[in-house]
């Protein structure tokens, strides 16, 4: 399930049990990316706070499908199939159109963005790509295309944070060997 010891929801006690509360799925367990934190429950709290603040926040003004697309794309670029899978499930749920979701999946995971995205979405995904692959080379002009497409500064921040959070989550998964094993899909 991973390369370090984790604690199942059924065995969790004290602070960890508290942290797990609300995260347990119908099969009685929590996702492996969450239980990976079980030896240091405070890092689970930090992870969840950042996740909610970047990907799942009601105060974001960009559509959730774009935010999730950024997460899928960054995960694919980092070779994190676990995160690709989870965020694709979320995207499919948001779109409620499996054909469109599949087109997005192919475009994002084979790095052929233009087949499914254009305009501001394409600009945002290109920004996320450069930030993921060569962060040291970022220049102010990398924001230009998003601005031209009508993004405000707050929306650029939303895209930045979605890409940055995913850089963190991917490294949590890839650096500790988190897999889908044992997760009941729903």
């Amino acid at each position: 399930m991973s390369w370090i010891t984790t604690i199942l929801a059924s065995n969790a006690q004290g602070r960890l049990a508290e942290s797990y509360r609300g995260l347990v799925r119908p099969n009685g367990e929590v996702a492996n990316i969450l239980s990976i934190h079980s030896l240091r429950p405070h890092t689970l709290e930090g992870h969840l706070a950042l996740y909610k603040a970047t990907l799942g926040h009601g105060s974001n003004s960009l559509p959730r499908q774009l935010i999730e697309s950024v997460a899928i794309y960054v995960s694919a670029l980092n070779g994190c199939s676990y995160c690709v899978r989870h965020h694709f499930d979320d995207l499919r749920e948001i779109l409620k159109d499996d054909g469109m979701a599949d087109d997005c999946f192919v475009a994002l995971t084979t790095d052929t963005l233009e087949t499914a995205f254009d305009g501001g979405e394409l600009a945002a995904l290109r920004y996320a790509r450069k930030l993921t692959v060569s962060p040291a080379n970022m220049v102010e002009n990398d924001l230009h295309e998003m601005r031209e497409s009508g993004f405000g500064d707050g929306e650029i921040l939303e895209i930045n944070q979605a890409a940055c959070y995913t850089a963190y989550a991917n490294r949590t998964v890839l650096g500790l060997g988190v897999t889908l094993h044992g997760e009941q899909r729903y």
Binding site: I4, R40, T132, P135, L157, Y168
Partner: peptide
């Protein structure tokens, strides 16, 4: 090991917040 992983992963986030903005 988890602590080490989390610090490295956090800086992957924080560095990109700065570099991307």
């Amino acid at each position: 090991i988890l602590e080490i992983n989390q610090v490295v992963a956090y800086f992957g986030y924080a560095n990109r917040t700065i570099l991307g903005l």
